[in-house]
Simulated scan of single mutants.
Amino acid sequence: MSGLTVAVEADGGSRGNPGPAGYGAVVLDIDSGDVLLERYASLGTTTNNVAEYSGLIAGLTAAAELGADHVAVRMDSKLVVEQMSGRWQIKNPGLRPLAAQAATLVAKFSSVTFEWIPRERNKLADALANRAMDEAAGKPVSSAAVDLDVTTEPKRERNWAPPSLDKATRLILVRHGETAMTQQGRYSGRGDVPLSDEGEAQAMAAAGRVAGISRDVAAVVSSPLLRCTRTAEHIAAELGNIPVTVLPELIECDFGDWEGLTFAEVRERWPEQLDAWLDSTSVAPPGGESFKTVSKRVRGAMATLLSAYPSSVIVVVSHVSPIKLVLRDALASSDAFLHRMFLDAAGVSTVDMWPDGGIAVRSVNETAHLR
Rank of each mutant, 00 (worst) to 15 (best):
V141I: 15
P93H: 14
E52M: 10
T350V: 14
F114E: 04
E135P: 07
G22D: 00
P248I: 08
L274H: 03
T47A: 03
R74S: 04
A205Q: 10
P140L: 09
E238H: 02
A68I: 12
T245S: 09
E272T: 13
I251N: 02
R267P: 01
V174S: 03
E272S: 14
S223M: 04
D34E: 13
S42T: 10
T151W: 10
S143P: 12
E38L: 01
A332L: 09
S77G: 04
M341Q: 12
R121K: 13
A21Y: 04
E9V: 15
L148D: 00
S333L: 09
E120Q: 03
S14G: 07
H176S: 05
D352R: 12
S222P: 07
A129V: 05
R267E: 10
R156D: 12
D329C: 11
A25V: 09
I30A: 08
A308N: 02
S164N: 15
W354E: 10
R362A: 13
E289F: 06
K108A: 05
G208V: 14
A284M: 02
S321N: 08
K123Y: 04
A137V: 11
W116M: 15
E153I: 14
G287M: 06
H319L: 03
A127T: 00
N48M: 03
S312T: 10
V174K: 01
V81M: 05
E198C: 13
G256T: 02
E252D: 07
E52C: 01
G177F: 00
D34S: 12
T5D: 07
Q89T: 11
E115H: 13
E265D: 13
I117D: 01
T152Y: 04
A201K: 14
G94D: 11
R156T: 11
D335P: 12
L325A: 05
D216F: 06
V298R: 00
S32Q: 08
N130E: 06
R96E: 12
P322E: 00
N241M: 11
L36M: 10
I323H: 01
N365E: 09
A41S: 14
P243Y: 02
L327I: 11
A168V: 13
T61K: 06
E38M: 09
A346D: 02
V81L: 01
G358D: 14
W258T: 04
V351H: 00
V80N: 00
A64N: 08
K296V: 15
A203N: 04
P162A: 11
D216K: 13
V150G: 00
G300M: 06
G177C: 05
P310R: 04
W116G: 06
T152F: 05
G59V: 11
S222L: 03
G260Q: 03
G288M: 05
T151L: 13
C228N: 03
E198N: 07
L195C: 02
G191M: 08
I251R: 05
R267W: 06
D29C: 11
D254R: 04
H70Q: 12
T293S: 08
A201T: 13
T104I: 15
T182A: 01
H339C: 12
R267T: 10
T179F: 03
L79D: 08
L305A: 00
V26I: 09
D149L: 13
A145N: 07
L165I: 15
V320T: 09
W270S: 07
R297V: 05
L95K: 06
A107V: 14
A41F: 09
N17H: 06
